[in-house]
Every structure is written in structure tokens, then in C-alpha cells.
Simulated scan of single mutants.
Amino acid sequence: MEMNNDFKLDVVSVRLVKEAPIFSDVKITTPEIATWLIGKYLCEMDREVLCVVNLKSDNTPINCTMASVGSLNQSLVSPREIFKTSILSNAANMLLIHNHPSGSLNPSKEDIEITDRLIQLTDLMGIPLLDHIIVGGNNIEYFSMREKGLMFHKRERYEQDYNNLKFYGNESTLVAEKERTRR
């Protein structure tokens, strides 16, 4: 086969660029600590800002990124933006924190829905979402979705022995159904 010399394929590289840190090596083990470290910055914002805090396995922050800057009462959240720095930072865990400029700490329907969706995605990615915290008004008050019982990790375990699989359908559309158990 003859190679065409006109064909070119761009080679790209992705690098993590670090900016000035906003906090020290304080381990984030509670929503209070996260609120103390990051909430004071978010409470100064005049629009909704969603931050992703990437954590080492001992919950020491690696970095923090603003994944979304929205309007007065909403922000658009893209899983792509959420995971970008987590993957590049080799994060073991992640934490979401966002503000409500109105001062209300009550999560919106969208806040709860995106948290549920991100839990599913973080479980697949292997970078667990530890909490989603809402701050508002001042940096003392917060709403932790984990503390309020709104974070449900749905771990599924699949059959590991092919002899225990049950097959359905005809030969052309044979489907294996795996028995699922919840932990």
C-alpha cells in the first residue's frame, strides 16, 4: 500500500496548568472545613459558581477549579468540565461546592438532579463524589447533600462466573442477563 504524503495528523498534548493556590494542606474531612476554605470566596460572587475540589486519597486538596459560572440563580453544569481537572490532577476523590447568591441554602430540583447524575458518573470514573455543598449569604452556613442524606451511591456487582449467566433470545440476538446485587 502506498502512503500519501499529503495526509497529516495533528498531534496534541494536554497539560495541567497550575494557578496560585487558594488554600493550604488542610484536609477536607467535613463540610465545615470545605465551607471555611472555599465558601468565603464563593459567598462574594454575584452569580452562581460551581467549583470542583480535587482531592488526594487522604482528602488533602490538590486543586480547585471553577467548572461553571452561571447567572444570578442558575448555572449550567457539564460533566466534561467537572471531570477535566479531576482526571488531569489524578484525583482520588472530588467535592462539589457552589453558591446561591440569594442566600438561600435550599437545593433546587436541578441541584439534586445533577448531583444524582454526577454520582453515577463519578462511580463509573472511579473518582468518588464525596459531597455537594451549597453556600450562601455568608461563609458560615452551608447545606451538605451528604449530611442531608441526598447522595445515594448505587454500586452494582455483576456475576463473575459465566456459568451463572442466564441467556435470552434466539441465536441471532442472544443476550446475557447478569444478576445484579446492591451493596
Score class of each variant (00 low, 15 high):
residue 2 E to I: 12
residue 3 M to G: 14
residue 11 V to T: 05
residue 12 V to F: 14
residue 13 S to L: 11
residue 19 E to V: 07
residue 22 I to W: 00
residue 22 I to F: 02
residue 26 V to H: 05
residue 27 K to N: 12
residue 27 K to F: 07
residue 27 K to C: 07
residue 35 T to C: 13
residue 35 T to I: 15
residue 36 W to P: 04
residue 38 I to L: 10
residue 39 G to V: 09
residue 40 K to L: 02
residue 42 L to G: 07
residue 42 L to M: 03
residue 42 L to E: 06
residue 43 C to S: 13
residue 44 E to Y: 03
residue 44 E to P: 00
residue 47 R to I: 01
residue 49 V to D: 12
residue 49 V to F: 12
residue 51 C to S: 07
residue 52 V to R: 11
residue 53 V to Y: 06
residue 55 L to N: 15
residue 55 L to S: 13
residue 56 K to I: 00
residue 58 D to E: 12
residue 61 P to L: 06
residue 62 I to Q: 06
residue 64 C to I: 15
residue 66 M to R: 03
residue 68 S to Y: 12
residue 69 V to W: 01
residue 80 R to C: 00
residue 81 E to R: 13
residue 84 K to I: 04
residue 87 I to E: 13
residue 91 A to Y: 00
residue 91 A to V: 11
residue 93 N to V: 01
residue 94 M to W: 03
residue 94 M to D: 11
residue 98 H to I: 00
residue 99 N to P: 09
residue 103 G to D: 00
residue 104 S to L: 02
residue 104 S to N: 13
residue 105 L to S: 01
residue 107 P to N: 04
residue 107 P to R: 00
residue 108 S to F: 02
residue 114 I to R: 01
residue 117 R to S: 13
residue 118 L to A: 02
residue 118 L to W: 08
residue 119 I to K: 07
residue 123 D to E: 10
residue 123 D to Y: 00
residue 129 L to V: 04
residue 130 L to Y: 02
residue 132 H to V: 15
residue 136 G to Q: 01
residue 139 N to I: 04
residue 142 Y to H: 08
residue 145 M to G: 10
residue 147 E to L: 13
residue 149 G to W: 09
residue 153 H to W: 04
residue 158 Y to H: 10
residue 160 Q to H: 12
residue 160 Q to D: 10
residue 162 Y to T: 09
residue 163 N to R: 07
residue 166 K to Y: 05
residue 167 F to Q: 14
residue 168 Y to I: 13
residue 172 S to C: 13
residue 173 T to H: 02
residue 177 E to T: 05
residue 183 R to S: 03
